[in-house]
Structure formats: C-alpha cells, structure tokens
Simulated assay, not measured.
Amino acid sequence: MIKETADTDPLAVARQTLLLEAEAIRGLIPQLNDDFNGAVRMLMECRGRVVVTGIGKSALIARKIVATFNSTGTPAVFMHAADAIHGDLGMVQPGDVVLCISKSGVSPEIKVLVPLLKSFKNPLIAMTGNKSAYLAIEAAYVLDTAVSREACPNNLAPTASTTVQLAMGDALAVSLMRLRGFTGEDFARFHPGGTLGKQLYLRVGDLAARNARPRVPADAPLQEVIVEMTEKRLGMTVVTDDRDGILGVITDGDLRRMLNGRTDWQQVRATDIMTIHPKTVEAGEMAVTALALMREHNITQLVVVTGGTYTGVIHLHDLIKEGII
C-alpha cells in the first residue's frame, strides 16, 4: 500500500495543481498588449479561414481552439505542424490567417513550417511562451503565453502552459464574438442538434404542435370530459368558449377531487370542476421559458396561447424528450 505524505496526498496535489494553473491564467492579464489587439483585428478582417497549427500538446489545444472558433462565427481549420510539411500545407489558401501555437517556438517542425507559410504570404500570428524564439520573431503578432512554471512536479509535462494556451484561445474567440455582435440566435444556428442549441431556438409552439389539443365546452357533461381527456392522453383538457377563449382547465387531479366530494355525477358539468385562471405560456416563447414556469409553479403542463387564444398544450415530457432538462 502506498504511504501518503504531504507531497502525495491526492487532494493536496489537486489543490496545488489547480492553484498553479489558476495563477498561470491570471498571469496572462498583464502580458496582454497591443499585439493582442492587432491579432484580433487581423482575424476579424480575415477573408479566408483561420488555420490553427501546432505540434505535440499544443496541437491538441489547437484543435479545441478551432472548434471554439467555428462554433462562434470564426471559420477555422486545424493543421498539424508535422503533417503540414508532408503535404497538408495544401490546405492553406490565399486569404487565410495562420495561428501557430508552440510553447518553445523553436520546435524543428515549426522552424521548417514558418518559412513555407511566409513564402505563401499568409499572415502569421504566434502563440508562444518564448517571445525571443524563432516563431515569435517571424510572426506579425505575438500572443505571450509564458508561465513561470508547469504544474507538473518536475516542471516538465505541459500543464500550466497548455492551460494558458487554451485560455488565450478563448480570449481571442470571445473578443471576436463581441466585435461581430455574435448573438445567442447565431450560436443556435451552429448548434441545432445539441441541448444548448435547442435551448436557444426551440419554441413552445414547436412542441405544442406535436400534441393533441384537448378541449370541451363549458356545459360539457362529465362523461364528455373524461372521454376527451382519455382520447387526447395529456391528463387534462381545456375548457373553452366558442372562440377558443380559455375558461379553465380540468386535470386528473380535479376529477379525483370531484369523485371524492360528490355523488350526483350525472349533473356535473365542466364549469363545475374546472380550475379557472390556468397557467399559460405564449406559443412564441422559448421552450426553456415554459420549463421555468413549470418549475416555478410545480406543475407538469402549461396551456399554450397565441394572443390569448388557446392553441395547444406543452407537457414536461415534451421537454424531457428534447433534452431540455
């Protein structure tokens, strides 16, 4: 069995690791300068794509930055620095801007790649922890991601350095989003299949349209109410006037309470057992708004209206099926 010490206790090591990486990110703030502004403007004015490249762990960070750029309105592609000098350099097109990520800035692959990029006349932005490195010297703008030490106890494995690279990539992406006026609706267009996207584009009316629209008139007898609720399978029915105005709702709970409290069932009409002033939601509202209302009032369904007119029902199960919850 391994004997734990102050240097090996997992919680202590984890806290120290996170502290070192948090301090490394905080250290980026004073390292930001006019080069960051210049890099953002260059990316903003790019008429092609942002080609993000790197080697080793930096290549993995580059892939994530590409994903973030693409999902926030900045077209980007990943190019591995080693593969670039063996044929993949062909993906770099006129008008593209290259963002090259390297902690040292002097990796052999980087030193071969940079002159080739410059011969193509593609603007080059460097993200490196060494401002005097070859990569930094050759770049139009340098994003300084130097760290005082790695979180690795041997100060060797890329940990704090890759964390700050990732954070710097986010800073670029968010700056570009602000400049473009990138909205939640824009985000949803790029994420139509995901939960986040659905929260931003899926509306109440989209879900209500899939459900039956149970309704009975105010003078409907109890038998008609039960048949409507059973056939429409939503556990409720809306009581409406002849213009689809909402008078109230009847739920399974209303029926149970009625059966417990009276015996003259043949005389019962919809208006006798309905709940007036039911909770409603406009068809044009976002589905997440309906969820918030259900949670607030501890209910599982809402009457959907369009300008005060009854148009359908949305149920908690609809939101669950879409992954909104």
Rank of each mutant, 00 (worst) to 15 (best):
M1W: 10
E4N: 05
T5F: 12
T5Y: 09
L11T: 03
L11K: 09
V13I: 14
V13C: 08
L18N: 03
L18V: 11
L19T: 06
L20Q: 00
A24F: 01
R26T: 15
I29E: 06
F36S: 00
F36V: 10
G38E: 03
A39G: 15
G48P: 04
G48V: 15
S58C: 13
A67S: 14
F69K: 03
S71G: 07
A76Y: 08
M79Y: 04
A82M: 13
A84H: 10
I85S: 02
H86A: 15
D88W: 07
G90D: 03
M91S: 15
P94S: 13
L99Y: 08
K111W: 03
T128C: 13
S132E: 11
Y134F: 15
L135F: 08
E138C: 06
V142C: 01
T145G: 10
V147W: 01
E150A: 15
C152E: 00
P153D: 04
N155D: 13
A157M: 08
A157R: 02
P158D: 11
S161W: 00
D170M: 04
L172N: 05
L176S: 05
R180Y: 14
F182R: 03
F182E: 05
E185R: 10
A188K: 03
R189S: 15
F190W: 10
H191C: 03
P192R: 04
G193D: 00
G194F: 14
T195A: 15
K198Y: 08
Q199Y: 13
Y201V: 07
L202G: 07
L202R: 04
L202P: 04
V204I: 08
G205P: 08
G205Q: 02
A208E: 06
A212N: 14
R213M: 12
P214M: 07
A218E: 05
D219K: 12
D219W: 14
T230V: 10
R233W: 08
G235K: 02
T237C: 10
T237S: 07
T237I: 00
T237P: 00
V239L: 03
R243M: 09
D244T: 06
D244R: 12
G245L: 01
G248Q: 07
G248D: 09
T251W: 07
G253Q: 10
D254Y: 06
L255F: 02
R256V: 10
R257I: 15
N260W: 12
D264H: 14
D264K: 15
A270M: 01
P278D: 11
P278V: 03
V281L: 06
V281A: 04
G284L: 02
M286I: 01
A287W: 01
L293V: 13
N298V: 14
I299M: 13
T300E: 15
L302E: 05
V305M: 02
T309D: 05
I314A: 07
L316G: 02
L319E: 04
K321P: 02
I325Y: 09
